[in-house]
Each structure stands twice: as C-alpha cells, then as structure tokens.
Amino acid sequence: MADTNPSARPRRPGVPVSRRVLPGFGLSLGITLFFISLVLLLPISGLVIHTAGMGWEQFWFVVTDPRVVASYKVTVLAALAASLFNCVFGLLMAWVLVRYEFPGKRLLDAIMDLPFALPTAVAGITLATLFAESGWYGRVLSEFGIEVAYTPLGIVVAMAFTSVPFVVRTVQPVLEELPAEDEEAAVSLGASDWTVFRRILFPVLWPALVTGGGLSFARSLGEYGAVVFIAGNSPYVSEVISLMVFVRLEEYDFAAASAIASVVMGVSLLLLLAINVWQGRYLKRLHGGRG
C-alpha cells in the first residue's frame, strides 16, 4: 500500500520535536506485539522447533515419500491452472466492471466477493453437487465425456472458485486510475483495439495481474475445505498437500504431519514475501517513487 503519511514533516528549529503528538503509541504497540507473539509467532516457532528436532534424514524421508510428492504435483498444477483461469476471468470482470455501465452491475460487483464470504465447506459440497454425474453441470459435461467431480479437474474448479476475488480486486483499482490520454491518442490515430490493449494497456496492467494471480496461487496451494469434497481424494491422483497433512494427523504421525506442514508453510511464507516485495516495487513505480 502506498504510504501517504507525511512522516517527514518540517521541523521548527529550537523546538524539541515530539514526533508522537498522538496518544496511544505504547498501549497499541504493547497490545499488538503481545497479540502477534501469542497468536502468530509462538505457534509458528513451535512448528519450527518440532520439525528441527526430528533430524534431517527422517525429515527428508517423510517429505519425499512418493505419495506426498504426488500430492505436491497435483496441488501445484491445479493451483497453477486455477490461477491462470482467474487471471483471465478476473481481468474480464475487472474490465467490464470498470469500463461499462449496464443494469445489474452493482449486483455483479457485489457477488464477486462471494467466495471470500462463503465458508469453504459450503463451497465444497455445492460444487461437488453441481459437478457430480447427476448434478446440473455434471450431466451436461458427461455428454462430452468430461468428468470434473472426483478428478483432479474438480480440484482446479474448487481452487478457482475460492480465489476468484484476488485478481478482480487487484486489477480493478489499477484500471480505474488508468489515464485516458495515451489510449485515446492511439485510438484516434487508428490503432486497433487489440493493438492498443497489447501495447498501451497491458504493460500497465500486468504487474497487478501478476500480484492477483500470485495471491490466487498462494491461496489455492493451501486450500482444503472446498477441495476435499470434490477431489475424490484418491492417493497419488487427487490428494492435495493440505489433505496429506490431515491424513498424517489422523494416523497420529505428528512428526510426518509437521514435516509436511513446514514445507507447505515455508513455501507459503516465501510466496507471501515475494508478493510483498513485488507489490512494493511496482507500486513505487506506479506512484512515482512514493510507494
């Protein structure tokens, strides 16, 4: 987010600058640090300590188990497919919501956030029902020989559904702030819509598209509730990583569960860091260095 706070305000010479005019610094710092340490950092360090205690060989053995490796592949491929779908769908939705006026637009805009508000388990049973062979979509798709429910394709559908808002909501503000001049000039000079989009609009839009796609990918990697109902969960074929953690837990194999979980968490945190750095850099460019 752009830091518009004028933190460097002019100082009057001779007057001791009290940078903190506003009250509550100590109180809010105390409460925040206490809360973050207790709720976030303590449990995370618990996992790190737990995993560190198990020794490198055992760790490697657990996280490279063929069934677990298969679940990495399924999860990463499905998450990639889901976020690619969301990049296209999200760009279309953002474009339509920003550029056009039509009846029902407010409703369309509002329902974009449904996947964030709807519990994942509810999304899971609903999508499974829709895409099952007897379901409204499943019946039509099976005519074409396409099976979605209880296959890896079902995982893609569930991941795509739960992460719909990310791309829409990151591209939307960029499209809104887009200056019209270059675009209008190019159009009036006779360039086709596609050329102008490719040469003028896309170069401004793609960083936001990458951010949204990245967030969608990160969210999809960890998705559990929506996926388990539609995936079928057969070993080596349609098990996701989160489910593997769960399976190991149900076998009371805490060591294996935490080893796999630490891989998942490490990847998620790295992704989060990468997205933050990326976002900071392109925002800075967008706002002329104020980012």
Binding site: L47, S242, L249, F254, V264, L272
Partner: peptide, 29 residues
C-alpha cells in the same frame, strides 16, 4: 509488522490447526 499480519492469509488452514495442536495438544509443551 504489516507483513506479519498477512501470515494467516498465506498459511493453509490445516497447517494453522496443526500449529495449535502441536503447541497445546497433549504432546506439546
């Protein structure tokens, strides 16, 4: 601090549950 607060967004919910189970479960310290 602003980045830390995003962690729950990035962590899989199953992993989140596991974090607490490891710490506060009958085996956790």
């Amino acid at each position: 601090l602003i980045s830390l607060i995003d962690i729950p967004f990035a962590v899989s919910p199953v992993v989140a549950g596991l974090l607490y189970l490891l710490l506060y479960g009958s085996n956790g310290w």
